[in-house]
């Protein structure tokens, strides 16, 4: 469960990149976070994960405040950043082991998970080479695997589908569904509207830092235009600001 309580953030004085955002992502829910470029998605995610401090408001992960008790809160989530170029001089396996050590994943569990996930995403045979030699999608897959190692209750992903091939993207969606079935939470940002429609239990739309819609996809369609394509819908919502 992720609770974002009236959070604001500005990089530059007088220009709020996130403006009084109030959101709750419940257990067992896949939540899609939509918005045009520069809307404030990454900024929001960075505040949830503790990379940025909110100017106002509070963020709780399973009831633990990321600012007041950061260590407990940070154990509650796994985060996939928008840029997967992590520590490219390490070998794939070295990176995974490093992350597993940080989250104190026991040896046998780590072995099972790494083998199972790496084979699923078809990068098992590349784990012995440096991340530098990986393609964008392979790096993305590696980061996703590393996040799943300690089986966090909340997944936070910043544009996880970019760069993934259809198969990998399908598998990731499957993993998300499985994860929420067990009562966990998935929060991710995306530009792909189809993903939002088919995968998410609820979506939130943010524009210029302000949340302009939260709810199910059906409600979104109802509230705005009845007919018309997804693109039209999206353009309408974000431009009528």
């Amino acid at each position: 469960m992720i609770e974002i309580k009236n959070v604001s953030k500005s990089y530059v004085k007088g220009k709020k990149s996130v403006d009084n955002l109030d959101l709750q992502i419940k257990n067992g829910e896949i939540f899609g976070f939509l918005g045009p470029n520069g809307a404030g998605k990454t900024t929001t995610i960075k505040m949830i994960t503790g990379i940025l401090n909110p100017d106002e408001g509070e963020i709780l992960l399973d009831g633990k405040s990321i600012t007041k008790s950061p260590m407990e809160a940070k154990k509650q989530f796994g985060y996939v950043p928008d840029n997967p170029d992590m520590f490219v001089r390490l070998k794939g396996i070295e990176y995974l082991n490093f992350i597993a050590d940080i989250y104190k994943v026991p040896q046998d569990i780590r072995k099972d998970r790494i083998e199972q996930l790496a084979k699923k995403f078809e990068i098992y045979d590349d784990l012995g080479s440096t991340i530098q030699s990986y393609s964008h999608g392979m790096r993305q897959k590696l980061i996703v695997i590393s996040v799943l190692l300690h089986n966090p209750k909340n997944w936070i992903l910043d544009e996880p589908m970019t760069g993934l091939d259809p198969k990998a993207s399908f598998q990731l969606k499957e993993l998300m569904r499985e994860h929420t079935k067990n009562g966990n939470t998935v929060f991710f940002s995306t530009h792909v509207l189809e993903v939002a429609e088919k995968l998410c239990d609820r979506v939130g739309i943010i524009n210029r830092g302000k949340l302009i819609f939260v709810g199910t996809y059906e409600k979104l369609k109802e509230q705005f235009s009845e007919d018309g394509s997804l693109e039209e819908l999206f353009l309408e919502i974000t431009e009528n600001e």
Partner: peptide, 16 residues
């Protein structure tokens, strides 16, 4: 460098 597999390496999963 060619991609290397980790199949035949031992002790790679030891925790630290």
């Amino acid at each position: 460098k060619k991609s290397k597999s980790i199949k035949n390496e031992k002790g790679i999963y030891t925790d630290k």
